[in-house]
């Protein structure tokens, strides 16, 4: 197994782990962290797969994509954290309101 492939596999693993945590945890901070772990997993796949088959030179485009992705992830996390704080201030706990079927 080649090294890039291993990294990509680990990235996929992080994605799956994050998805699992996103679903089972109720606390919003854990959900936000889980999304960040998923994001890191995707970035890892992108970087690892930049090493294309054989002896081809490294491709820089995925790295540029990851930089863009990090900027997006930082802004999204900031918005999510602000929302969580606001929700906590209004309702007293940082969890999503129950899915009451109204």
């Amino acid at each position: 197994m080649s090294t890039p492939f291993l990294y990509a596999l680990v990235g996929t693993g992080l994605f799956a782990l994050g998805l699992f945590a996103l679903i089972i945890h109720a606390h919003l901070l854990r959900k936000i962290l889980a999304l960040n772990v998923m994001g890191s997993g995707v970035f890892m796949v992108l970087v690892a797969l930049a090493k294309r088959t054989g002896d081809a030179p490294l491709d820089a485009v995925p790295h540029a994509m990851v930089i863009t992705g990090i900027v997006v992830a930082v802004s999204a996390t900031a918005l999510a954290l602000t929302l969580m704080l606001k929700l906590n201030a209004k309702s007293g706990h940082a969890e999503l309101p129950d899915d009451r079927r109204e």
Partner: peptide
């Protein structure tokens, strides 16, 4: 509204990340 916005944000981010992983695979 805040609860709904939070739920919407989590769903939107999850959707985007799944999409981005697909982009990574197609690019590869």
């Amino acid at each position: 509204a805040l609860g709904a916005a939070m739920r919407y944000l989590l769903a939107a981010l999850l959707g985007s990340l799944a999409y981005l992983l697909g982009v990574a695979l197609l690019y590869h």
